[in-house]
Simulated assay, not measured.
Amino acid sequence: MTVMSRADPPAYYAPLLAPAGAGGTALDAQTLAVLARVERFTVHQRVTSAEVATCGCCEQPNSYAIIDAASATPIMVAEERSGDIERCCCAPNHSLMLDVFAIGPYGTRTAQVMTIERAGCSRKPGLCCPACGPCCADRATVHAGRVEGWAGEVGTQRALLVVQQSAVCDACLHPTVSVMERAGGRFERYASVSGPCCFGGCSELCFDVPFVAHDGRAAIAKLHPRSLSAALRELVSDSDAYEVALRDPSWTAQQRAGLLSAALLLDYMFFERNGDAIKCEDGARKCNCCNVYLCGCVLPCKCDCSCQRGGSGGGGERRAGGRR
């Protein structure tokens, strides 16, 4: 009699025992089968010891676990591929590729099923400016299988999906991204996801940040920490958690892949800021209550949270008076 030490994997893992296809103009059947069976995803950013030890100053490539929330089973993992110099100097606005791998039975990683390309500030100098045109708007391009080359130079000739930051005229006070899929020789929008005007900073330790599709058929939420240890981990690193909820079962598997890609792009756009809650500036501790989105720019609302008695200038005057 054979005794298994662990529970059998869900039925939809069966196709992943064979390697997935690499490249092409469509996701392979194995990946489509997995995505079609999941209605709610959670995305957990993994913690790196180097970032924790340096309080986020030593920027490391990100890694995300994509989980079927209903069964708490990992189904994919996304791993960042980026240049060390640009990542350390320009993060979170750096160029990168996210390699998405399928996860098979018992957590074993199988073939790469998608590549998410994001051109950073080295390719788009106006990335931190208001999104007035293509050179200023953030974007993620989703390809099937593994794609080689520099981020921003691959192009969209064989791309499946595009997640594009909306222009200022369409989203002045609310961060918005459009999710588009290939339809013939062009990309057509099938979802537009918008978030609140105020988010981030200390507020994200207490409240979820919802990004909701305009038609209400789906939602992406940046989840607030559920425990003290998770809150401390988020303060000293960029470790975040997201939920992608599909409220309409008619979403195709490829459209679900686009929403997952949108969640990953939103993380880089708005939640990868080191010291976003508390930061030392000019010798004082600054508390960022929240960030305000205005015409594509993210403006922090900061206050002085240091507990020093009197300023340094005042102390100098009192000492001088005492000597007199």
Rank of each mutant, 00 (worst) to 15 (best):
A231L: 03
L232Y: 07
L232R: 01
R233P: 00
E234D: 04
L235P: 04
D238R: 15
S239H: 07
D240Q: 09
A241F: 01
Y242I: 00
Y242R: 12
V244M: 06
A245H: 09
W251R: 03
W251E: 04
T252E: 06
A253M: 04
Q254F: 01
A257C: 00
G258L: 02
G258C: 01
L260Q: 05
L265S: 01
Y268D: 03
M269A: 05
F270C: 03
F271H: 11
E272L: 03
R273Y: 05
N274W: 02
G275T: 02
D276F: 02
I278Q: 10
I278P: 04
C280E: 14
E281T: 12
D282M: 08
D282I: 02
D282S: 14
A284R: 15
K286M: 14
C287S: 09
C287V: 03
Y293L: 05
Y293V: 03
Y293E: 10
L294M: 12
L294G: 02
L294H: 14
C295T: 08
C295E: 14
G296K: 13
G296R: 15
C297Q: 15
V298W: 08
D304Y: 07
C307P: 00
Q308Y: 13
R309S: 07
G310Q: 11
G313E: 12
G314H: 12
G314F: 09
G315W: 12
G316I: 04
A320Y: 05
